[in-house]
């Protein structure tokens, strides 16, 4: 009998890789065989050539976007924790603020980007503030849910052992809240890159967002794609960093 589980594990990796390669191959074939103008659809090989050719320029632009996205992600983590702690600490405060915060999430917050330009100018602080503004909420909600989802019996147990509130917080509430905090942070990682890119679209003179917009206005499609590839790497790297951090922290807490 063939080793079914080994085959299954191989397929889990091979199938998606296969479809991705097939997709790229079809793209390459279509673009070259049908001689589609590079303005409309550059072939993957053109994009790779562009990536290699303007590597230095792309890296320079990516350094702005990447650094700002990372900073915004960290900031939304901090703001999210603070908001969650504030809401968790007082019931009347939570009752007052929470529904307003939730209602606020239903509106297209991206539309507020120009306001940040008016308030904070066209430099990094404006984009950081905007990006944090759109990405802190999942962290806040996640952490609040986590802090409130603590098993009441675990707290009762600690109280029966005469643990102090700070001990309960450290040994019970934090471990319970950590997974929720990190799932919020993963959403925030994606949102913070989006926030920076939208900020760069409307104001900045550098960064991948403005680079893409400029390339778009010059109809340099291969350049757009090359910048998109770099941007995706930034997005995935930020997400991966959060996932890695979660693993480390969870292991440290042995959760």
């Amino acid at each position: 009998m063939p080793d079914a589980t080994g085959r299954e594990r191989l397929l889990t990796v091979a199938l998606p890789t296969g479809t991705a390669v097939a997709f790229l191959a079809v793209w390459q074939a279509v673009a070259t065989l049908w001689a589609i103008p590079a303005v409309i659809l550059p072939a993957p090989s053109d994009i790779v050539r562009q990536l290699v050719g303007s590597w230095g320029e792309l890296l320079y632009q990516a350094s702005f976007t990447g650094a700002e996205a990372l900073a915004a992600c960290v900031l939304s983590g901090i703001v999210g924790i603070l908001v969650a702690a504030m809401l968790a600490s007082s019931t009347p405060l939570r009752e007052m603020l929470y529904p307003n915060l939730v209602a606020f999430q239903l509106i297209p917050k991206i539309a507020l980007a120009p306001l940040f330009v008016i308030w904070l100018g066209i430099d990094a602080p404006s984009r950081l503030a905007f990006s944090t503004f759109i990405s802190f909420f999942p962290v806040a909600i996640g952490t609040l849910t986590g802090l409130q989802s603590t098993n009441p019996n675990a707290i009762r147990l600690c109280q029966s052992l005469t643990a102090s509130p700070s001990q309960i917080f450290r040994h019970v509430q934090v471990p319970y809240a950590l997974p929720f905090f990190f799932s919020g942070m993963k959403v925030a990682a994606t949102l913070s890159v989006i926030g920076i890119v939208v900020g760069e679209f409307i104001s900045s003179k550098h960064g991948l967002g403005s680079y893409i917009l400029l390339a778009g206005s010059r109809a340099e499609t291969a350049r757009i794609f090359a910048a998109l590839v770099v941007l995706c790497v930034i997005g995935l790297a930020l997400y991966g960093a959060i996932a890695w951090l979660e693993l480390r922290v969870r292991r440290a807490w042995r959760g």
Partner: peptide, 14 residues
């Protein structure tokens, strides 16, 4: 889901 799809906007214009 994880990549910043917003940045693709200029492609749609092209």
């Amino acid at each position: 889901q994880l990549i910043p799809k917003v940045a693709v906007a200029p492609l749609f214009i092209i």
